[in-house]
Amino acid sequence: MRDRPWILLGLVAFLGLITFPIWYNQAAGTTSAAPELQKAVKGDTCIYPTDYMRASHMDVLMRWRDEVVRNDKRLVKIGDKTYNMSLTSTCMDCHTSKADFCDKCHNYAGVKPYCWDCHVDPALLKGGAGERAALRAPGGQHVD
């Protein structure tokens, strides 16, 4: 009988917690708009259809990694075109900006791919000598 305030407190706390994402989005001014990506700087079509790439590009990249790193095979034929199986040379030849292409959706979906544990964003390499030095510094990313 004397526990009723506690029960009500618990119920209110539960409702507050479960609806927290609503207030969070309200405060952040979130809308259901999709992130805007950098347009490919060249080419009309991607190596595979866009729908497939949107959902399954990670499969392609993992396949490429295995072929290149484990089987020492560098070229792949898709349709009548031959591509170099390389993230930074092939993919990022058209989608040049990691920040404006890769990161947009990955940040949106809360995905942190470990591509960049080894690969370096090409934009960083084009930077000034200072940035390159920073990359070579102990603890920085290894540049080859």
């Binding site: 999709a34 959902a55 959706c105 979906a109 995905v111």
Partner: peptide, 10 residues
């Protein structure tokens, strides 16, 4: 695999 950005928009 699904288009995860579309799912998040939903």
């Amino acid at each position: 695999k699904v288009d995860i950005v579309a799912v998040k928009q939903l």
